[in-house]
């Protein structure tokens, strides 16, 4: 799971979608890898306006990236270094193991060998525990 993806993920439980506590999901016991990819500056410039910045800052801090500015950089602030830093965080950094936890209902989604699983107990034929009924 890439960091950019987590900016577009919330809890799969319908009742949580309207709750601000469900976004972003929170990382627990996350293990990271960096995969080197070619920098696409135009992509970074154009994806930046789409990003929910406060959520990204929260996610980044949980993963140990503490140097992100607290407000979204303006287009003229996007120098080479800033573009490279954002590229590294958003698309090169992957969470390979760990959990994503909903701040509203507490449900934990597993990430194993890089793949997150968002199936809910009812998809797996298990009776629904209280938060899901």
């Amino acid at each position: 799971m890439k960091v950019l993806t987590t900016n577009y993920i919330t809890c799969a439980v319908k009742a949580c979608k309207s709750s601000s506590a469900a976004f972003p999901l929170h990382f627990k016991d996350a293990e990271l890898v960096q995969e080197e990819l070619e920098l696409n500056s135009d992509f970074i410039r154009n994806v930046l306006p789409r990003i929910e910045w406060p959520a990204l800052v929260t996610t980044a801090v949980e993963l140990g990236f503490t140097t992100l500015p607290s407000t979204k950089p303006a287009p003229e602030q996007l120098d080479e270094k800033m573009l490279q830093d954002l590229h590294t965080l958003l698309v090169e950094t992957q969470v390979t193991e760990g959990k994503l936890v909903c701040g509203n209902c507490g449900h934990e989604y597993n990430i194993h060998q890089g793949i997150a699983n968002f199936l809910l107990p009812n998809h797996l034929g298990i009776n629904l525990p209280t938060p899901f009924v």
Binding site: M1, I9, K17, V91, A116, N117, F118
Partner: peptide
């Protein structure tokens, strides 16, 4: 999909219970 090392991302989810916020995708 994951093993193909795409620049994009993939995970397991049910289409009727997608883990995505409303109103954000192009």
């Amino acid at each position: 999909a994951y093993d193909r090392k795409l620049i994009h991302d993939s995970f397991v989810a049910d289409a009727l219970d997608l883990p995505h916020p409303t109103g954000r995708f192009d």
